[in-house]
Design a binder for these strands. Structure first.
Lengths: 135, 135
DNA sequence: ATGTCATATACGCATATGCGTATGCGACTG
DNA sequence: CAGTCGCATACGCATATGCGTATATGACAT
């Protein structure tokens, strides 16, 4: 029994058909993050982020882990190879997009620089993961 | 100057995020077809087909050719490799879907069987093409 | 217990999407 | 040149989607 059901093409593509969700996936490529990082990097309101993360989770391409008051989100590799391959290639594609690269730069600053984003003071740091797409 | 502009991830995924459009793309994988074939195989109304074909065309993943009163549609390989790769893998994926296979069976019957679909009597036959996905 | 923090969800709104029906339009036919 | 054929588009409608604001929930701190 697979941990999650096969993902249909329509469900996958609908999940990928939104810029905000693509940005979230790009940030999760290589690390598990809690919500406040997404809010900080995309500099938007928190409910918007939570809604899109919930969407990705329902679609089956993102998984969540509770940790005290924090929720950590990570990419969940789809059980069907076709969907997994497309997701991987999508992440590779995004890695060439300037805005996506900039998002990753901001994420890096948020963790490591002396002047971290205000939103994430005291938040648990990102947890590195095996990236699905290009690191 | 490229024949068509690069396709953005959102535009591509939005185009792929609809079952009807996926069925149309699947039918075009390997041949150029005129509208009446799509109408016959999907057994739906013609404006619905035309609208979805126009959508795919605007998205840049389908091209059209006028031939008298007929319009022939075919898959247009996106100029950016990332988009082309995803489109190809999508077509490969669809080739495993039962409904998609059934559609191709119907298309084959429509052309070759003695009892062709009524919709396509007198229509120009499909024109074989190099398939982008699995043939 | 009370407050605060991180996150999720409810709500109302504006816009987008997909659909069927009706109609427009160019191309061929008699 | 009137009719028909293949296709595209306009229109009205129902539903879906994404958004910001407000509020609920659950965990931790005091």
């Amino acid at each position: 029994m697979p941990r999650s059901a096969r993902i249909s093409a329509e469900v996958l593509f609908r999940a990928l058909a939104d810029r905000t969700r693509l940005r979230l996936l790009n940030l999760m490529n290589g690390q598990e993050l809690c919500v406040c990082y997404f809010v900080g990097v995309l500099s938007t309101n928190q409910p918007k982020i939570s809604r899109h993360l919930a969407y990705l989770r329902r679609a089956g391409i993102v998984a969540a882990r509770k940790d005290g008051k924090w929720m950590h989100y990570r990419i969940a590799v789809p059980p069907n190879d076709a969907a997994a391959k497309i997701l991987k290639q999508t992440l590779d594609w995004l890695a060439h997009d300037p805005e996506m690269r900039h998002d990753l730069t901001l994420l890096n600053k948020a963790c490591c620089s002396p002047n971290a984003l205000v939103e994430i003071e005291g938040a648990p740091p990102p947890i590195p993961m095996q990236p699905l797409g290009a690191a």
